[in-house]
Design a binder for these strands. Sequence first.
DNA 1: ACAGGCTCCTGCAGGC
DNA 2: TGCCTGCAGGAGCCTG
Length: 293
Amino acid sequence: MPELPEVETIARGVDGRVRGDRISEAWFSSHKEPFKNPPRRQAKGLEGRLILGVHRTGKHIVCELGPAAGSVAMASLRSSRPGPQSPGDTPEAQWIVHLGMTGRLLVTPLDSPVAAHTHARLTLASGRELRFVDPRRFGRLEFRDLGRTGGFAGSGAEPLTILAEDFAALFRARRLAIKAALLNQALLAGVGNIYADESLFRAGIRPSKRAGRLTRAELDRLRIALRGVLEFAIERGGSSVSDYVNADGGRGFFQLEHCVYQRTGQPCVTCQTPIRRTLIAGRGTHFCPRCQR
DNA sequence: ACAGGCTCCTGCAGGC
DNA sequence: TGCCTGCAGGAGCCTG
């Protein structure tokens, strides 16, 4: 399941491939999901637009889009010299992609076979396609016209940059389990099941402990462990469990570094105690009963 | 306001 | 071998 490191890896990969390109044509499937606004309106809004850049906010991939240009000649001219845009290129629209559980965002050759469950195909002036594939349809696609609505703001704080004081304040007086709090996107944006379990293990904190009962020392350990595990996972290209692949369809390697996630019954890397699995907030939760108190 | 539970969806694993 | 059941989970929604 794509979380912050996987989304960051994909956003960087897609950005490097499509920045400066132009969307010549947009095709969408006829399913109700995964579209936040009607696919026809999305297609109309996207066609002809220049891609200024692609970045991550929480678990969302945000494509910043420039003005639409009608002329095909101009589109091919632009695509022949890709690269950073001039500072004058302010975004006029955004295309927001949430991958859900099984979503993939891929840059492919025009003639590459179309995978099952492909819900979006943006044909680029350079002769490639940006494709969104999502078997489970938990993902979401949204087009925003910045002339009519505000830009995508995201939800919670960024775990990579949040300050110690702000991090501690997020969990103050909260009675739910710290694991459930970490998964709450309104508090922290980008943490999912894998990195919640892995950061709690590295911080030595029991996932079921009530968030508001963590000491300041524990909260500091958790913030540092979370940032460390996310940064390390980004370096390794994310965790490939389930369907995750990067913009090229390649896999990440952080799953090889998991200490607890999906290691039920296997020995703890620190103390050899078998890793235990329980259910918190309806999610499979993995922890070491000896290292995590 | 907050917390917990249910729902969406498909692929895959396990059991008989 | 083949079918069926249950499980995985992000996030929006509903309820208490």
